[in-house]
């Protein structure tokens, strides 16, 4: 028994002959911000998919706040307090940005009240506050399908945040965001997470982002965790530098 918020033990999942997860053990402590790095195909997204219920692990256990969640459907897992954002943003394209966020606010309560508008004054201001946290307030009235890739990415994260999760999983939150804006956005995002004391796990390819914003790093390779620890130690490890960062090219 530990004080971990999320605890995965011996997770295994193979697609045909490919072992996307081959005995994954990982603990995430309450309040920490953990980065997952590793080459493409190492099984990083598969891990997020298993934790959020999109994929069912073939072996192993996932405990969230002490409760077994492996194999539960996504809807149940969300209600327990785990939200996620996506590598490719999943927006309601024909709704406005504020409606995208408000639908997620409503998902927590009042969703089935048939005659209370989605954009009630209270929900509108709450949605705007979340958008403001990510500097998205000016886009609130824009239709989601008119946004550029970077903005779509952030709206996707804002939607997950609107669920007020205890644990937020993010798949490459800064890919698609202009290089010059990455750190500013991560600063705001991490500040928002800390303010709301949300525990976070994010998959990331940009080592500078990892070094600056993560409390801890886990290195994935071939369906397993090869190394984990504080960013400065892990990123300096020669093996990690060769196998992970080397494969990916120099940090940009």
């Amino acid at each position: 028994m530990s004080g971990a918020l999320l605890e995965a033990r011996g997770l295994a999942l193979a697609f045909g002959g490919v072992r996307a997860a081959d005995g994954v053990d990982l603990e995430v402590a309450p309040g920490e911000i953990l980065a997952i790095i590793g080459p493409n195909g190492a099984g990083k997204t598969t891990f997020l998919n298993m934790v959020t219920g999109y994929l069912r692990p073939q072996a192993g256990s996932i405990r969230f706040a002490g409760r077994e969640i492996a194999g539960l459907p996504p809807r149940r897992i969300v209600r327990l307090g785990i939200a996620r954002s996506f590598q490719i943003p999943q927006l309601f394209a024909e709704h406005r940005v504020i409606e995208n966020v408000a639908l997620h606010l409503a998902a927590r309560d009042g969703f089935w009240a048939p005659f209370r508008p989605l954009l009630s004054p209270a929900r509108r201001s709450e949605a705007l506050a979340i958008l403001d946290d990510l500097e998205l307030a000016p886009l609130a009235e824009a239709r989601a399908d008119t946004l550029d890739e970077g903005a779509r990415k952030l709206v996707d994260i804002a939607m997950a945040l609107a669920l007020r999760p205890r644990l937020l999983l993010m798949d490459e939150p800064t890919s698609g965001v202009a290089a010059s804006e990455k750190h500013a956005i991560m600063d705001r995002l991490v500040a928002a997470l800390r303010r709301a004391s949300v525990t976070a796990v994010f998959v990331e390819h940009d080592m500078e982002v990892v070094a600056r914003h993560a409390d801890r790093v886990a290195v994935w390779s071939q369906g397993r965790i090869r190394a984990e620890g504080p960013p400065e130690a892990v990123l300096a490890d020669p093996l990690v530098r060769r196998e992970v960062i080397g494969v990916e090219g120099a940090p940009c």
Binding site: F15, G53, Y54, L55, P73, P74, R75
Partner: peptide
């Protein structure tokens, strides 16, 4: 028909 792996 084949049942898909995804669950939602």
């Amino acid at each position: 028909g084949s049942t898909e792996l995804r669950r939602v």
